[in-house]
Nucleic acid binder design. Structure first.
Lengths: 344, 344
DNA sequence: TTGTAGGCGTTATCAC
DNA sequence: GTGATAACGCCTACAA
């Protein structure tokens, strides 16, 4: 199948030995070869449409020019954005980005598939759990890794994430300025960094505003999904606790709140204000348009790609760059799901 | 970097020659080898965590167990659904699915990148233009190809798509039953099969309902995007033509109509009904919830993956299975963007 | 049934 | 500056 032009054929066409052709074709070694010869080889390669065989090259160099990206779920629209950003910056440098979708990078299955079966040069991990371990092959080796979106306590790798603490500050202050005092929080799963950090931030910002956070007003979920948001909102309402606003740990769970509130005849924002987190695609078009924290996912992905590139080059040059951890600033999008509390 | 367990090491561990180990490890040739020996080898491989080196194997067998998928844009949520379906059926058989995002599979650049630079065993094309040619390498060779979502006039390959004609029939009949007679169509680009087929279907179903399709009520666009929908809707309104319903060729363009209509104080569905096509994620949550044609994207992707697998095995066995072309039935989702025309 | 050896297309290390 | 040669890890005739 698919047999393509080989280096030998280019060399024959140019009338040189194939090792010379190899040197001429490789920009890094081109200077070694006579300029005239190089030009001849390049012309021959162009004429025949030569492309180096990626497998042969990879076998020899032990590099595939392919980066793996582990995401939990492409159907949540924030991950395609992350992907697009990372893909853009990696493609610039000739790298491919290979997606693997699944729950947790730390599981042996996902690790082996993406790391071993595809021999990627590096791993961008967007699906880490808070105690995830680095994917490694059977001989305990691992690949250059960049965490994105989610961080961990356990993996010592550069990371690019959102400043969740600041983000939650934006919504809490917004609600406080509107006059809310009884504010509930639908917290994300506590095995994912975003869930933990946003929850802690919620408590911290409430306290710094002089407000209470009674335990019945904080409900944890098992996943950042609509259904989990629904369940949490039901629990919140069934507890009988009084509140005039809900801070959702992400947009999808806030959407789940929309559903339950509507079912029970509670109007947003008239009776209860609701905020999300992420500013996912089209969340400005749901009804009512959701007030949320806008996270620069594309930029996060792009930056993760760039960090990966520096990791790969510093690995080659042996320079021991320290892992950096970056948090990008989010901003508040005030829309129609928040309003002053109803006077009661 | 990343040096893993090799076949020789497994063979040494098992006390056999490495060619024997190779045969024992390969299910196809395992029967040749002594059952006892095979068991020993398998145990050794298990113990050491042996995984065949994908590049070495691929170089030798000329197969990478990787399928490329060309999509126009992962940010349109229908494509992640297609991807998820295809990935699921391919992963079952040990194949990887590699995404390449971009506009048209027929362009040399995208062809070369996905087909040559990654040496995929096959190509699932979801971004074909109507006159696209097969991606091929410099020696005019191509790979097994399956078209999905969009079809072409020019590529002789199996395809899996939606029955667009039937889908448009569903919305037109729905609007006719509501009492509409003056119905406009925002047509997709005419260089994409879906744009063409839906447009033709619109005309055909209107006529078979005894209704007219004056040219000013059909506006073509240059892409299936929100902005194009906006522009088309503006042209429609500025033409001064009278109509009480708009059939959008997809959901995103119908969303663009929502925007323009709202800006001009025209209420949906009271003044004008609007329908979409795709039933993309969260389109049931925009305001008003959109009546649309629901397309089984996940199933389409899954089927495309299966067709690819049969293509690959029939290629091996030399059986000349004819290209099949499948169209999956969509169904109508009636929501809140359609209503009887206002009595005037 | 098992061992031998050649080759897939590169790159890299030798001589010359 | 260039040519010969080995090696990357695996598969597979062919020979034993």
């Amino acid at each position: 199948m698919l047999s393509s032009v080989t280096l030998r054929e280019v060399a024959d066409e140019a009338g040189v030995h194939y090792s010379t052709a190899s040197r001429a074709l490789n920009p890094a070694t081109r200077s070694i070869v006579n300029a005239k010869t190089a030009k001849k080889v390049l012309a021959a390669a162009e004429r025949l449409g030569y492309r180096p065989h990626p497998l042969a090259r990879g076998l020899r160099t032990n590099r595939t020019l392919t980066i793996g990206m582990a995401v939990p779920d492409l159907l949540n629209p924030v991950f395609p954005q992350l992907y697009a950003g990372a893909e853009a910056s990696l493609r610039d440098q000739g790298y491919w980005l290979l997606v693997g979708a699944g729950d947790d990078c730390g599981t042996p299955k996902s690790a082996s598939r993406i790391l071993i079966d595809q021999h990627v040069d590096g791993l961008i991990v967007a699906n880490a759990h808070i105690h995830s371990t680095l994917p490694q092959n059977p001989t305990n080796q691992t690949a250059p890794t960049v965490l994105v979106n989610r961080t961990t306590d356990t993996i010592d790798a550069p990371s690019v994430a959102c400043d969740d603490h600041a983000g939650i500050g934006l919504v809490v202050r917004h609600l406080v300025e509107l006059g809310h005092t009884d504010i509930a929080h639908i917290a994300g799963p506590q095995f994912i960094s975003n869930g933990v950090i946003r929850r802690q931030a919620f408590v911290a910002w409430m306290h710094s505003s002089g407000l209470e956070t009674p335990p019945e007003l904080i409900v944890e979920t098992d996943g950042f999904h609509i259904d989990e948001g629904r369940r949490a909102c039901e629990r919140l309402l069934d507890s009988g606790a009084r509140f005039t606003a809900i801070v959702g740990a992400n947009d999808l769970m806030a959407l789940g709140c929309y559903d339950v509130l509507a079912e029970r005849g509670i109007r947003v924002p008239h009776d209860v204000s609701v905020t999300g987190f992420d500013d996912m695609a089209y969340i400005d078009r749901v009804h009512p348009a959701m007030t949320t924290v806008s996270v620069p996912f594309y930029e996060m992905g792009a930056l993760a790609g760039e960090v990966m590139l520096t990791l790969l080059t510093s690995e080659d040059s042996g320079a021991g760059t320290l892992p950096t951890s970056t948090r990008l600033r989010p901003h508040l999008e005030v829309r129609d799901s928040t309003a002053p509390p109803a006077v009661s």
